[in-house]
Every structure is written in structure tokens, then in C-alpha cells.
């Protein structure tokens, strides 16, 4: 091996240890509005950090999250090993926002218009993060709703085209109408884990898979 090649390979080795061991992977929590992304993010943070302040507010009104929020250095322990990740809770993605839908939630017009403007900025921001700034994706779906939507098809396609590791979470299994199988049928090429982010059901399997996929 020539001196220069040797030097180059030791530099790249040093760089790869630097990135793999010291830079936590940034995991984007994606999915349609109201799927439970923030509820999950809050649970992860509460389970694994000492001062588990909430990542953001949870709400039944869509587009509650309108800015991507990152929580750094979350250390998840699995089988005696520690996996460190950054969690990025993102605004729910959609191709349309109609402020009049917020009026149905007892909101004044002015507030509804502001919420819709912030929501559109938030979705644009989420798409930007997905193209540039995440190393892996947790895709959260409400298992009581039809997974065969265009937004889900497009987002999973975008994630696949970037070769990002992705874990699909079938959320809200505590509800009667939940169907995990419907989600498995829609995305057979990916691992799907059932859970209730609200009740904390099946979180052990969720953390096992986070460690395996993103560790």
C-alpha cells in the first residue's frame, strides 16, 4: 500500500468511526396529520431521558405540530448496549390544507387562517428535512384509517428512493377499529410494528426495532 493510499484509508477510517460512533443518527418521525407522531415522540423522550419534557403538544385537531422539533442524544438501552439517536418530530404531511376545516373545531376564522398558514410552512419544512437532514425514518400510521392514501404511497416512495432505513408503526391499536394487517398489506416490503403510543402498549418491541434499524 502506498503512503498516500494508506494515509487516505486511515483518514476515512477515522472519519467513519467519528460518524458512526459519535454522531447520533437523526430519526425523522413522519406520517400523515393526527397519526400520533408527537404522542410517540413524547413517549420516547419520557421513557429515555431524565427530564422528559414534552417534545410538543398532542391534539386531536390536525396540524398541531407545525414546526419540526429535534430532541438530541436520546440513549436507548437494549440488551446491555446503548443506541443513541436524535428524534425529529415533524408536521404531518398532506397535499392540501383548507382552513375552513379548522372552523369545525370551534376556532375563530383568524386563528384558523393562521393555523393553516403555519401548517403549510410546516409541511414544506418536513419535506425539506426528509430530502436533506434525516438518516432514518419512523413512519407512523393511524391503524384505524385506510393506509392506501396517495400521501403514504408518495412518502414511502420518497423514503425508498433515498435508501433510508424505515420502520412502519401501526399506531392506536387500543382502538376497536384498528387493523394492523391492512397496513402490512399496503407496505409488505417493510417491517410493521403495532403499538399504542397513548397507552404505551408494545413499546418494548418498538424499542427493539429502533435499536436494530437505527443503531
Amino acid at each position: 500500500m502506498g503512503l498516500l493510499t494508506g494515509l487516505r484509508s486511515s483518514i476515512s477510517r477515522a472519519a467513519s468511526t467519528l460518524f458512526s460512533d459519535e454522531e447520533p443518527k437523526r430519526i425523522g418521525i413522519y406520517g400523515p396529520p393526527n397519526a400520533g407522531k408527537t404522542t410517540l415522540s413524547n413517549r420516547i423522550v419520557r421513557d429515555w431521558t431524565e427530564h422528559g419534557d414534552a417534545v410538543g403538544p398532542e391534539s386531536h385537531i390536525p396540524h398541531e405540530t407545525r414546526r419540526a422539533r429535534r430532541r438530541e442524544n436520546i440513549e436507548i438501552e437494549r440488551d446491555g448496549k446503548t443506541v443513541t439517536i436524535d428524534v425529529v418530530d415533524t408536521p404531518g404531511v398532506t397535499t392540501k390544507v383548507d382552513y375552513t376545516e379548522f372552523l369545525e373545531h370551534d376556532m375563530e376564522k383568524e386563528d384558523a387562517v393562521r393555523r393553516s398558514r403555519e401548517a403549510t410552512e410546516g409541511v414544506a419544512e418536513a419535506m425539506h428535512w426528509l430530502r436533506e437532514d434525516v438518516d432514518g425514518v419512523i413512519y407512523v400510521l393511524d391503524s384505524t384509517t385506510d393506509p392506501f392514501t396517495q400521501v403514504n404511497t408518495m412518502l414511502i416512495g420518497i423514503i425508498e428512493s433515498q435508501d433510508l432505513p424505515v420502520l412502519i408503526l401501526a399506531n392506536k391499536i387500543d382502538l376497536e377499529d384498528s387493523s394492523v394487517q391492512r397496513i402490512r398489506n399496503a407496505f409488505p416490503q417493510h417491517e410493521t410494528i403495532p403499538l399504542s403510543a397513548l397507552e404505551g402498549d408494545n413499546m418494548d418491541e418498538v424499542y427493539d426495532n429502533i435499536a436494530e434499524y437505527f443503531g
Binding site: 419535506m127 408518495m154 420518497i158 428512493s161 433515498q162
Partner: peptide, 10 residues
């Protein structure tokens, strides 16, 4: 393409 779809949404 997926990338174009992503930009179309944005």
C-alpha cells in the same frame, strides 16, 4: 420521480 413528488408537495 420521487424527488419531484417531494418538491411538488413543497
Amino acid at each position: 420521480s420521487p424527488d419531484e413528488e417531494s418538491r411538488l408537495i413543497e
